[in-house]
Simulated assay, not measured.
Amino acid sequence: MAWNEPGGNSNNQDPWGGRRGGDRKGPPDLDEAFRKLQDSLNGLFGSGKKRSGDDRGGRSGGFGLLGIGLALLAVVWLYSAVYVVDEQEQAVVLRFGKYYETVGPGLNFYFPPIDRRFQENVTRERAYSKQGQMLTEDENIVEVPLTVQYKISNLQDFVLNVDQPEVSLQHATESALRHVVGSTEMDQVLTEGRELMASEIKERLQRFLDTYRTGITVTQVNVQSAAAPREVQEAFDDVIRAREDEQRAKNQAEAYANGVVPEARGQAQRIIEDANGYRDEVIARAEGEADRFSKLLAEYRKAPEVTRQRLYLETMQEVFSNTNKVLVTGKEGQSNLLYLPLDKMIDSRGAGSGPAAPAASTSASGSDLGSRVSSDMQQRNLRSRESR
């Protein structure tokens, strides 16, 4: 039953603990309510002294609430003022909006809201990916995807110099990529030029970031496999296949050259060695002939007639040993010549023997005939000299 409904004992009872029509009349006393709340809080915090008088209790209650509020604020401020910097982190502290210090790992303290703190991991490598269609030097469109790996090298510059350093990194990456791709031909972009492109992009990108003083260091730039736009992919595939065929033909030609050139060099060296041998042989023979002539000259000076006769006989023997026809002159005053067909005579005599016999009999008959002819000529010369 509600306290203000008619009937029952509740007609004289109010919700503040008084009775209507009793000791208290009208609304409840607010000072008394605050005093009761203060007493209960003092009991919780160990201050249980009773105040004498309503005015004194109200004033002490107000001061108590203010103290509690200040204590809570102090606890919250102290909790937010103490912070821990990890081993991989650094913190930059600003005091009144101006750079104050850079804090290393450990337990640290600052004064908010006077101070502001920016804490970042400076050892972790971060990555950023970019892909887009770009125009090459020979006016072809290619899609070049790349990944940039970076880390914070200077936290003060990273926090203070640029509003959004990572956005600046993205813009600088796009600028460096377009500049490098725009100065490279399509063949280099699609094939073996990616490593050189990555090196040039990294160098140019780091130069941009240093100029902006972003505090970012680029550790690696990876240019992935570039490709042509899908609309012209088939034509590019044909170009790539043609390039592969060209490279295969070059490899085959180089293999053939590697097999032929050494052989030709070997043959040339052999010809050179043969020529050197022939030269040495001719020189040695000439030197031998010259030495023989010198010795023969000495003998000729001692006995000219005998030496001349011996030279003549040796020459005739050498000539007759290499021919199969002989001409014999008659006596002095006679002009008749006798022709001896020795070749036919030798062939008719050795026709019944084997294949090896004619050659042996020919050489033997030729040498015997030469000896007889030479001896006959010597006798004739002696008789002619005696008759004179």
Rank of each mutant, 00 (worst) to 15 (best):
R241E: 07
N322A: 14
R292P: 02
Q233W: 07
A255Y: 05
E299M: 06
I271S: 02
L209Q: 00
R301P: 01
E273I: 03
T323I: 12
I283C: 03
Q233A: 15
D245T: 06
G288L: 13
E281L: 12
G215K: 00
L311F: 15
R207N: 13
D280P: 00
A226D: 02
I216S: 01
L313F: 09
E254A: 12
R279W: 11
D210I: 07
Y300D: 07
R230E: 07
N324W: 02
Q269A: 15
Q220G: 00
E263S: 13
Q247V: 06
Q206A: 04
E273Q: 13
E244V: 00
I216T: 01
V223N: 05
I283V: 15
R265F: 05
E203Q: 10
F236T: 09
A268K: 06
D274N: 05
N276F: 04
D210M: 07
R241Y: 02
A228N: 02
R279N: 08
L296V: 07
R279Y: 10
I271Q: 02
D280G: 11
N251K: 09
E281C: 01
R243C: 00
Y212D: 05
T219Y: 01
F293H: 13
A284H: 10
V232A: 04
I240G: 04
V306I: 12
E263T: 13
A235P: 01
Q267K: 04
E273A: 15
F320R: 08
N251F: 08
E289W: 11
A228E: 06
K302Q: 14
Q206M: 11
E254T: 12
R308K: 13
Q206K: 01
I283R: 15
E234V: 09
S294E: 13
A253T: 08
Y256H: 07
D280V: 05
R213C: 00
A235E: 08
Y312E: 15
L297E: 13
I216E: 03
R243W: 03
Y278Q: 11
R270I: 01
Q269R: 10
F236M: 08
P262D: 08
T211N: 14
R279A: 07
Y212P: 01
R285I: 09
T307I: 03
A275N: 11
P229R: 09
V239E: 06
Q206G: 01
R279S: 11
P229K: 08
Y312Q: 14
E318P: 06
